[in-house]
Amino acid sequence: MDFWKDQLKNLFNDERLDGLIKSLDQQLEHSLKEFDQHLNHFHSNYFFQVESTEDENEIIIEATLPVGEEDKVKLDMVNHQLRILIQRFETEQIQNNNGELLKKENFSKRIERYLPLPANVDTESIKAAMSGNRLTVKIPKIVKQSQIIDIDLE
């Protein structure tokens, strides 16, 4: 019986447990760093920051878009929401060691974001400008005074 007790003590001694915990900790830290790198790549290529300011005459929306030279940016209104759409066309080629083309694939990616707009804006008079990767959209407000509605009594 003493033999098995000694074996269990050796199996679960502090040095071995410390080594196991350190090894697991290093593996977890390495995995989290790789995940963070993938997440940062995904975020920088498929999301974009949007800021809006407002005064009494208009709403100004500014966005820094993850666009390249070949990407197309489109704005449109969908159910009283401003849609910012980025269409990205890419080509992937695989060549052998001699430089001969083995495979060529064309594909497109879409990145879009919907921004709900308040009811008091003039969606027909929206102005947009692009400078580099910075998009600025100016949406004028409609100045409407309240209206009294008569009620017919029956």
Score class of each variant (00 low, 15 high):
Ile21Tyr: 05
Ser125Glu: 13
Pro140Val: 04
Asp122Ala: 07
Leu39Asn: 15
Val73Ser: 00
Gly68Asn: 01
Glu92Pro: 05
Asn120Cys: 11
Ile84Asp: 07
Ser52Tyr: 12
Glu69Phe: 08
Asp6Val: 02
Met77Pro: 03
Ser131Arg: 02
Gln81Cys: 12
Leu82Gln: 06
Asp152Val: 14
Ala119Met: 13
Glu34Trp: 02
His30Asn: 10
Glu92Trp: 01
Gln93Ala: 08
Asn106Met: 11
Asp36Tyr: 12
Val137Trp: 01
Lys22Val: 06
Ser44Arg: 13
Phe3Ser: 07
Ala128Val: 04
Glu92Ile: 03
Asp18Ala: 12
Val78Ile: 15
Ser131Thr: 09
Glu112Ser: 13
Asn96Ala: 02
Asn96Arg: 02
Ile148Trp: 14
Ile139Gln: 06
Arg88Tyr: 00
Asn10Thr: 05
Leu39Asp: 14
Glu124Gln: 14
Leu115Gln: 13
Asp2Ala: 09
Ile151Ala: 09
Val143Lys: 15
Asp71Ser: 01
Leu153Val: 14
Phe89Gln: 05
Leu75His: 00
Glu124Met: 10
Tyr114Gly: 09
Asn96Cys: 00
Ile86Lys: 02
Leu153Cys: 06
Met130Thr: 01
Gln81Val: 00
Lys103His: 11
Met1Ala: 07
Lys104Phe: 02
Glu29Ala: 12
Pro116Glu: 11
Asp36Phe: 11
Ser23Phe: 07
Ser146His: 15
Val121Leu: 09
Asn13Glu: 06
Thr136Asp: 03
Gln27Ser: 03
Glu154Val: 04
Ser146Val: 12
Val50Lys: 01
His80Cys: 07
Asp55Asn: 15
Glu105Met: 09
Leu101Val: 08
Val67Lys: 00
Asp18Trp: 03
Glu34Cys: 04
Gly132Gln: 08
Ala128Met: 08
Leu65Glu: 01
Ile126Trp: 05
Gly68Ser: 08
Val121Cys: 08
Arg134Gly: 02
Ile139Trp: 07
Asn10Gly: 04
Arg134Phe: 09
Ile21Phe: 10
Leu17Tyr: 09
Glu51Asn: 15
Lys22Arg: 10
His38Phe: 15
Thr91Cys: 04
Glu154Met: 10
Glu70Val: 03
Arg88Lys: 13
Asp76Trp: 12
Lys33Val: 12
His80Lys: 15
Phe3Met: 10
Leu65Pro: 00
Ser131Phe: 04
Lys33Trp: 00
Asn13Gln: 09
Glu92Gly: 02
Lys5Trp: 03
Leu102Ser: 05
Asn97Leu: 14
Ile148Glu: 15
Leu85Gln: 09
Gln95Tyr: 08
Glu58Ser: 15
Lys5Val: 05
Ile151Gly: 08
Asp18Val: 09
Lys144Phe: 11
Lys109Phe: 12
Thr123Glu: 12
Ser31Pro: 04
Ile21Thr: 06
Glu100Ile: 01
Glu112Pro: 04
Arg88Asn: 01
Asp18His: 11
Leu24Thr: 06
Leu85Cys: 05
Ala63Phe: 00
Asn96Lys: 01
Ile84Gly: 02
His41Lys: 13
Asp2Leu: 09
Ser31Leu: 08
Gln7Tyr: 06
Leu32Thr: 07
Glu54Gly: 08
Glu124Ser: 13
Asn40Tyr: 13
Glu54Tyr: 02
Phe42Tyr: 15
Phe12Asn: 06
Ile111Cys: 10
Phe3Tyr: 08
Met77Phe: 09
Ser146Asp: 15
Thr64His: 09
Pro118Val: 10
Asp76Ala: 03
Asp2Cys: 03
Leu8Ser: 04
Asn120Val: 05
Leu11Arg: 10
Pro118Lys: 10
